[in-house]
Computed example of a mutant assay.
Amino acid sequence: MTHKQKPVIGISSGDINGIGIELIIKAFSDQRLLDICTPVVFASNKVVNFYRKTVHESNFSFYHTKELDKINPKQVTIFNCWDEEVNITPGTLNETGGRYAVSSLQAAVGALKEKKIEGLVTAPIHKANVQCERFSYTGHTPFLRDSFQARDVVMMLCADNMRVALVTEHVPISEVARHITSEAILSKLAIINSSLQKDFGISKPRIAVLGLNPHAGDEGLVGNEEQTIIGPAIRQAKNNGILAFGPYSADAFFARGQYSKFDAVLAMYHDQGLIPFKSLAQGEGVNYTAGLDIVRTSPDHGVAFDIAGKDQADAGSFLQAVYSCADIISQRKEYSEQRQNPMRKVAPDVVSRLEDEKIEE
């Protein structure tokens, strides 16, 4: 891949008292990462230098600027979002960490809108700590949905060929059931189906849908959402040309490895999908926001205040987020070219199966 072909990927700092900057330093200490992308970190060279001193084995160098037109394709570029001295207190939950996390994220979103960068990798924020007039969201996903005026988006966790998506995200358990509607499920399934095609190159994706209740309701004995809402939504999705299956009992589905037969799994709520995903992904998972015009990924973990500033953070998930961002940008370009030139020879799709393959429901 030449420098001209490399995507320019923005990286937000996350909470500056968390592990975000440490992850960035560790990841980009491997110069080979510069062969697949041109990274632009939205932060401050002063903050980066503070954390560079805490990472003992790093080969991290950077160039800093206040002008996005002066990005260096052969180096990590720090785009200085602020000039003032900031009191950095690793591992501390305070207003400073949240304020500069929002400043970094908003600067990166501005660069995306101006097409100065092609994708975004977000370092972790503390959801309660970022609440302010400029940011009143429960996380990155709804903020990006509104920033790019998307009707709906899907939080999708990815690791190798395992993808777990959510109908509801950061919703209290006491409120989950009222958010489970046929309309919501159909919207998520349409986004997932489209994303698997254009972002992951899967021509005929198969999507499993989990039930809401234990044992997927046991035919109405343990709740009836499967019969009245989820099942009808799956049938309607099939009528819409989406290969959706279920509803499956969540415990048996993951315990028996059934997820490996599908290209994505739609879970009804956060922990139903993320507990098995994180257990199986073993630290290599990536959070992807499907349904946006832009590409956004992030590591699948939080700010980790308990180890911040101690040189103990594992950059594995963050690295995967960078790789995934670059891969999806490339895949989207390829998909767009194929759409514009349908006669162009397409490589065999190694991920999707024959349409008549039998999958047990």
Rank of each mutant, 00 (worst) to 15 (best):
S136I: 06
F79C: 02
G110Y: 12
I125F: 04
K116Y: 04
V121W: 04
L112F: 05
I88L: 10
N87I: 10
E85D: 13
K74I: 06
H126R: 12
E133T: 10
T77L: 06
L112P: 11
P73R: 09
A128L: 12
I117S: 02
Q75M: 06
K66R: 11
L93S: 10
G91Y: 13
D83T: 11
G91R: 12
V109T: 14
D83W: 09
L93V: 13
V153I: 11
S147I: 12
V121F: 09
D69I: 05
P124V: 07
G110R: 03
V76Y: 06
V109P: 03
F148A: 11
Y100C: 02
R151A: 15
K127R: 14
V130R: 13
W82F: 07
H64Y: 09
K127A: 15
P142G: 11
G110K: 08
E118M: 14
T92Q: 14
C81R: 01
R145C: 14
G98W: 03
I88H: 00
W82P: 05
G119V: 08
F79G: 02
T65V: 12
T92C: 04
S104Y: 15
D146L: 12
Q75G: 00
H140S: 03
C132D: 07
K66F: 11
T77Q: 14
R134Q: 14
H140Q: 11
S147D: 09
D83N: 15
S147L: 08
Q106T: 12
Q131V: 10
P73C: 05
T89L: 09
F79W: 04
F135A: 00
A111N: 01
F148Y: 08
F135Y: 14
Q106F: 05
I78W: 01
N80A: 06
V76E: 08
